[in-house]
Design a protein around this nucleic acid. Structure first.
Lengths: 346, 346
DNA sequence: ACTGGAAGTGGAAACGTTTCCATTGCGGCC
DNA sequence: GGCCGCAATGGAAACGTTTCCACTTCCAGT
């Protein structure tokens, strides 16, 4: 019942275990007759080579660790789908875990993955501290960051979305529609990467628009906090004509808050969000959004990882791989009109 | 560089490997002084016990395979989150894979998991054929089905949502609002489990409502097909007053088709969907839906699995665990009024 | 016919653990 | 004052594989 071993197969086929191994892995020279006998025996005994024994001997497990903040989040899920696709194609398997944006959980999961002797780890990192990552690398596994970087590790291989470009494109789009008072709804803490807010400010400046601190709102990463931030923003600045939400949770909050305050979108206020989600086109009106290539990010991260763990030390330090974002123009942003909210009468 | 082994630690601490093993696993009696020396040595050498060596010896890997159709789907993702939560609490890790609703992929992934010597598999099964599952069980791993069953395996442990109850509750709700001509938008093939359509028919019958075949539409599992099915349904039966979508993809299609045909929801037609999704409340109007306890399903499936693989043969055949669904009443369903579409004039 | 080499095969070591068993002190009990 | 038993420890076998090496055929080339 405990599963047949290579010895059982060897005995059943009347050959040595080395020969069985050669047949199963297709490595050495084996006569056709022997191969058939071995295969038949393996079939009969329902033999499945043990990845444990093999891994122990070859020091290769074919395991990849994947650490995302929350598999329930569409970004994480798409990323995971990309990793799975690439891993499967390369004959690897993926050990998934969720950090919940908690640095301590992240550190513990890294320990576990190290024990599992994964060949590499793909992570959307939480911890700003580079040491756990350095420690893991020293232990063996390659590490590739996806979607975010760790400040202290500028040379670590990573695959990123072009956040700055995405934010720039949406701000330029809004400016082109005539918007001058554009608010930014950002995250506080680990959630909303500050990179989006930075890019927002930079684009405003580049376009020669005023940067009013009053038009920035920040929320903690809970639905309530996001809603409160959005609502208070709308009430504080009745003259704003557009808002960019720096994350899909924040986008939800903006939509809900606008609806609560009976603001018409886009007649009264334009809304754009930075992380596109499947439901943007189901909203009424459909939401204009910056789409991240999450699946590609995952696929590329996995490619990079496998190349790194195969190539060994020969790998170059490597610039970050940056994948383009795409502005999905839908219906939630409109031109500024004279009749807009508290804008000056035409 | 290849990582320190238990021997290295033993040498560094001046003890035998057995003692190191006892310290690391906290099993046997070890003097406090020795324990400290060993721990210090392990720390210095950055020793991480190898799960490979341990697994080989103990025949326990702590690995759980998780097979979902598509990790990108909210149901799968929530299920996975539940499994992860339970697995982590029990010190297990999860090997994730996506079947893409393809029976052959599913079979191949099962082979791989068997080689990995997972202790069990949690699966949203695709294949109607019970044999691959029986074969896997014979090899050792326990199997728990989640969300669906395999027709040929009535006694296999499984954790299900109360699909029938959910459908019944939404149909009764619609009937209570005065709806008499309620359409059902279902899936064809593996996607839309026929169990929902069956429950729909049964409830109609129980309520004494006519079951008109003309009010059933079926779509292949693509967005285009779903949209086409929904649109043609609305056009074919302008007199229908409500539609139940038997899946969230189909619900999307219904919403989009209604919008395309400029039907007002719920004034012209009421829409309800069977699988709740995060964006139902963001829709305008928010969608009434039957919510599945996907995360609990995953958690319970994992509990069941671990109990089965621990208890060994002592496990009872076990009735399926059925978890309640919940009708989330939102705004997309309204009472039937005389002015409704092509209903008789008041 | 003899030899060099290749094809085909089996034995045995090694991978890193856990665990059984044996060994050594040692204190307490009769 | 011996003896029993327990705490503390180390040695060695076993888990299932891969792979190096050695060995036997057998064939082609001389």
């Amino acid at each position: 019942m405990g599963g047949a071993t290579i010895k059982d197969v060897a005995a059943a086929a009347g050959v040595g275990i080395a020969t069985v191994s050669r047949v199963m892995s297709g490595s050495g020279p084996v006569s056709e007759a022997t191969r058939r006998r071995v295969l038949a025996a393996a079939e009969t005994l329902e033999y499945r080579p043990s990845a444990l024994g093999r891994g122990l001997k070859t020091r290769r497990t074919g395991a990849i660790g994947l650490l995302v903040p929350d598999i329930t989040d569409p970004f994480s899920a798409e990323l995971a789908a990309g990793v799975l696709a690439c891993a499967r194609a390369q004959g690897c398997h993926v050990v998934l875990d969720a950090t919940g944006e908690d640095p301590d959980v992240e550190a513990e999961l890294l320990e576990r993955l190290a024990e599992q002797r994964v060949e590499g780890v793909i992570a959307v990192p939480v911890r700003r501290d580079p040491r756990p990552w350095e420690a893991l690398t020293r232990l063996g596994p390659a590490v590739v960051f996806a979607g975010r970087t760790v400040p202290g590790l500028p040379s670590a291989p990573c695959v990123l979305a072009d956040e700055a470009g995405g934010v720039r494109s949406v701000v330029e789009y809004l400016a082109g529609l005539g918007h001058r008072r554009v608010a930014f709804l950002g995250g506080r803490g680990a959630d909303g990467p500050a990179v989006r807010e930075e890019a927002f400010r930079a684009t405003l400046a580049a376009l020669g628009l005023a940067v009013e601190e009053d038009l920035f709102a920040r929320a903690r990463p809970t639905a309530d906090s996001a809603f409160a931030a959005a609502a208070s923003l709308f009430q504080r600045r009745p003259d704003l004509t557009a808002v960019v939400a720096g994350g899909h949770r924040l986008g939800e909050a903006a939509v809900l808050a606008a609806r609560e305050l009976t603001l018409r979108v886009p007649a009264d206020v334009s809304i754009a969000i930075v992380e596109d989600v499947p439901w943007s086109e189901l909203c009424d009106p459909p939401l204009t959004a910056v789409a991240h290539p999450a699946r590609d990010l995952g696929y590329r991260a996995c490619e990079l990882l496998l190349r790194a763990s195969a190539g060994g030390a020969a790998r170059a330090p490597g610039r970050p791989v940056v994948l383009a974002t795409e502005l999905m123009v839908r219906a939630s942003c409109g031109p500024v009109t004279g009749s807009m909210r508290t804008g000056r009468p035409r």
